[in-house]
Amino acid sequence: MNILDLLLKRRLFKKFRPNVLIIAGLAIIVTLILLAVLAPYLTPYDPTAEVARPYIPPFVDPKHPLGTNFLGQDIWSRLVYGARNSLTVALLAVAIAALIGVPLGLLSGYVGGAIDKVLTFLMDSMYAFPGIILAMVISFVLGPGLLNVALSLAVIYVPTYFRVIRGTTLTVKEQLYVEAAKAAGAPLLTTLRYYVAPNVIPVAVPVLALNFADAIITEAGLSFLGVGLPPTQPDWGVDISLSRGDIIHGVWWTTFFPGLMIFIATLGFLLLGEGLTEIIRGT
């Protein structure tokens, strides 16, 4: 094998790897979204109804493929409806965080001065606080509920966006085309919108995916601890929490399947995020 072949292989491999990550991640994510959207068609049961005798083991009764829990609720039904809640909370949290963090980061990085100092100090103080504890406190104060969980998660992600966007803005700001905007007489908002933001925001995309992964696992954590979704909701974290006493009696399936879902969902977004990061770094 000559050197050219080797180089070619290397480059192909480099190009290939992020793509594999992204495809694998997207496959998982798309499946989850389908589960969430099509939930009513994938199961005949209400996830909150007691539809059979409790503790049917999985793979025994074809009507309840993953078995039932201590209340006789169908586990499969709870998983697909749980996907709904989990994804909704994560989407809301990430969207709110990005909507606040990105503009503030742009402003802080571009304008600088006192605004920058104040904002950076605020964000750093938030960042210094352990995320899950901060979210617990906020969630506890706001009370259980889908939007409230999303809000408390958003609070811990805002500084992430702020930092990433501010840092990139500082670099982009020095580019001649930003000075070209000034030379053309563009006011502040025009400059930010057409010259700074389009060149800064792409770096936040991988962060978006990684935060999504974090949001799913943290939401499950909050719900497990009882400060997330109310215990009546079908939710992976809630399910593990309610059934956690089952394991010592040998009933593994009531906690295993929700746990598996959290694992798979988190993995999907992590893979996507890693793939995107490598692509952005590569070019």
Binding site: Q175, L176, Y177, E179, A180, A181, A183, A184, G185, A186, P187, T190, Y194, Y195, P198, N199
Partner: peptide, 26 residues
């Protein structure tokens, strides 16, 4: 002003025509 470095003086996210014409809109 005509800038020195044409590699960083153009906005990579704007089409050439829109970039040239943006001052007209501003």
């Amino acid at each position: 002003i005509i800038f020195q470095d044409p590699y960083s003086a153009l906005n990579p996210k704007m089409k050439i025509g829109d970039f040239i014409g943006h001052p007209l809109e501003i």
